[in-house]
Design a protein around this nucleic acid. Structure first.
Length: 288
DNA sequence: TACCAGGTTCCGA
DNA sequence: TCGGAACATGGT
């Protein structure tokens, strides 16, 4: 393996914020930063001073350049967030200015966010890691063992019981069904690329176990549709407490935010989500 | 020990 | 079409 390094200004690319803001689950702390896994690939990334570095195999350089969305100017997005006249959004953008919306693999994103429903992030990470350990390919990167994301064939080959053993609970049947449907060509994710965002979300919610929230996440993190605005429990709190919203239906909240923020909705959503969760963990540490 | 977590499905009215 | 229970289980 020939290692190569990508070096990028850290002003709008902080690796901790980008990974720990809840958009991705396959990474772990390593040395001064993180090992990040996507499909069958791995990289090591760390932020030091005014630079963020990505070390990876030379042949994966373009992949991770795209994965971290490095061709986009995030300073404009952050500025726009600060200039909306909404205090919490301004504060959120200040905290999350180092976040980049990752361009993740569609299949991996779909499986991940089906598992995420009514679940907590540490457990989502554990379940995915266990599935990769059991069904993925064993590889090595920088002396560390890791497992690739399994193929659809591998996923479809396991019985329902296996997924329950992975700790998926009632979500096991969704995962089992999806894997089987992909292998049997009843679902073709690659055919969805050309659809409008609304059509895409319609198609995604047609999948068993995928509702509006998961469809929004897959649309945003997998298809890079930044006019998507996933509304979960945290964002619903933000809507009620900080935007003084009156709508009760989360799908309507999502539409309201998308109408308000347009193609920046997805970025702003991520800033808000990260900020609200950080605030909560801060207050719980203080014994409140 | 309860309550909660990046929700969705299913069922009855 | 709509409200609400049921769903599994680890984290805190």
């Amino acid at each position: 393996m020939n290692l190569t390094t990508i070096c990028f200004k850290s002003e709008n690319f902080n690796i901790k914020d980008t990974l720990e803001c809840g958009q991705v689950f396959r990474f772990r702390k390593f040395k001064d930063g993180y090992l990040v896994f996507s499909q069958d690939k791995a990289c090591y990334s760390y932020t030091f001073g005014d630079k963020t570095y990505i070390e990876c195999d030379e042949k994966d350089k373009d992949y991770f350049y795209n994965y971290f969305d490095l061709s986009r100017d995030y300073s404009k997005i952050v500025e726009s967030a600060k200039n909306q006249g909404v205090e919490i959004l301004s504060l959120s953008a200040k905290l999350g200015k180092g976040i980049r919306i990752l361009k993740q693999d569609v299949t991996e994103t779909l499986f991940s966010f089906i598992i995420s429903q009514n679940n907590n992030i540490p457990r989502i990470k554990n379940s995915l890691e266990k599935i990769c350990q059991n069904l993925g390919e064993n590889k090595e990167f920088m002396g560390e063992v890791y497992y690739t994301f399994p193929t659809n064939q591998k996923l479809a080959g396991k019985p329902l019981e296996f997924y329950k053993e992975m700790g998926l609970g009632y979500r096991a049947v969704y995962i089992k069904t999806l894997a089987q449907d992909i292998v049997d060509a009843r679902i073709d994710l690659s055919s969805l690329n050309g659809l409008s965002t609304n059509m895409l979300k319609n198609a995604l919610t047609g999948i068993y176990g995928v509702g509006p929230k998961v469809a929004d996440c897959v649309s945003l993190f997998g298809f890079n549709r930044t006019d998507s605005f996933p509304v979960d429990t945290w964002i619903a709190k933000v809507y009620e407490q900080d935007f003084n919203g009156t709508l009760k239906d989360r799908k309507k909240m999502a539409d309201w935010f998308t109408l308000k923020f347009g193609n920046n909705a997805g970025y702003f959503q991520q800033y808000l989500f990260y900020y609200k969760r950080s605030l909560e963990s801060q207050t719980s540490k203080n014994g409140k």
